[in-house]
Simulated scan of single mutants.
Amino acid sequence: MNELALKYGCNPNQPEAKIRMKDGSDLPITVLNGRPGYINLLDALNSWQLVKELKEATGLPAAASFKHVSPAGAAVAVPMSDVLKKIYFVDDKPLSPLATAYARARGADRMSSYGDFAALSDVCDKETAALINREVSDGVIAPGYTEEALAILKAKRKGSYTVLQIDPSYVPAPVESKDVFGITFEQHRNDAKITAELLTNLVTENKEIPDEARRDLIVSLITLKYTQSNSVCYAKDGQAIGVGAGQQSRVHCTRLAGNKADNWFLRQNPKVLSLPFRPGIRRADRDNAIDVYISDEYMDLLADGIWENTFTEKPAVFTKEEKAAWLSQLTGVSLGSDAFFPFGDNIERAHKSGVSYIAQPGGSVRDDNVIATCDKYGIAMAFTGVRLFHH
């Protein structure tokens, strides 16, 4: 089959949508269940490229959680602590390596991942399918599924859950094109390889990047390669912990991603772990409540008494001083940027979220200021020489 009709395009007022192979060859994807939409397929094809590259670069099973053609999370299969399992709501399930990667990808920014499209680098097993099954998600793409996994996923959403299988040997043509306002754009597709070789040009006084940080920088850069630009990604322990996508200003990317990284770490605080939720509260409602609890809005909402249906008792306030003290323990974070940092203010913000290692293209007229700011905090920074804009 070289063509697949879709319900509609990006919006219902854009009918007659479809995907097709221009050369008349068969599509490399097969719909095993459900009916994918236009945005579903954009998410699926971008996320598949991301996890495929992560697997090739690290040798580890990889997963991604996509929303609106940018990753909410991406990860490789690094074992998790009991605390991470708890905040990702997977402490009650057996975890295969692929399920571990998926739990990390989905758990990094659970609010953004709500209603996502998932991608898996390896054949989906029953452990991974069981995790996907209980999340609010639009679909999944993988190179294959075990019989048990496919049965679980086909039953999701009353049988309407989208399950896509992609041919892992498919290689697209080197030149890609798209139409904008009736005009066709063509370019050589971005086939730049993200490897540890990109991290050898260390321009700071600190020239030590341990192996785990190199892995995390690779995770960050490959994630950025499929994130709508401008974009910045914080990573730790084999996963993205904060992605700032599509901002016009780079420092706003750095702040947005940094705030997400902060929230990821704050969720691991004992006060958050011990929140007295009422029995039966849904995971999505817990996510929303936790997000507000660790925000500066909590005091106002506490006074409004809206928590009676969520908690068995009013949680103790998580003060600004307590949050600052907890965040001061976050270190060893890796950060990637899809283009150069124009000013040192990005480094100042990154430092506040525990960044110790940075990879960015370099090439700003203010590189000296950016390097000096890194040196002030002992941050090791590599110039990759490779820009990763994605639009």
Rank of each mutant, 00 (worst) to 15 (best):
H252S: 04
L256Y: 09
V251F: 04
T310A: 04
T254Q: 03
L302M: 10
N309M: 14
Y234K: 10
D291V: 09
I306K: 14
L302D: 14
V243L: 01
F277Q: 13
R286E: 06
Y298H: 09
L266K: 10
A316T: 15
A316F: 03
D304I: 00
D291N: 15
D287K: 05
Y293Q: 10
L273V: 02
L256C: 11
H252M: 11
S249N: 08
F265K: 12
V232H: 06
S249P: 03
A235C: 14
V251K: 00
N288P: 05
I306G: 04
Q228L: 07
T312N: 02
G280F: 09
W264D: 04
N269Y: 11
M299N: 14
R255S: 13
T227W: 00
A235F: 07
D300V: 13
T310L: 10
D291P: 04
K260H: 10
G258I: 02
V272T: 02
L266S: 07
K271L: 01
T310P: 07
S231I: 06
N269K: 05
N259Q: 05
E313P: 05
P276S: 08
D296G: 01
G238P: 04
P279R: 05
N309A: 12
H252K: 06
I306N: 06
L266D: 04
A235L: 10
G242R: 08
N269Q: 01
M299W: 05
A316M: 09
V251H: 08
G280L: 03
M299L: 11
A245K: 12
A284L: 10
V317R: 12
V232M: 12
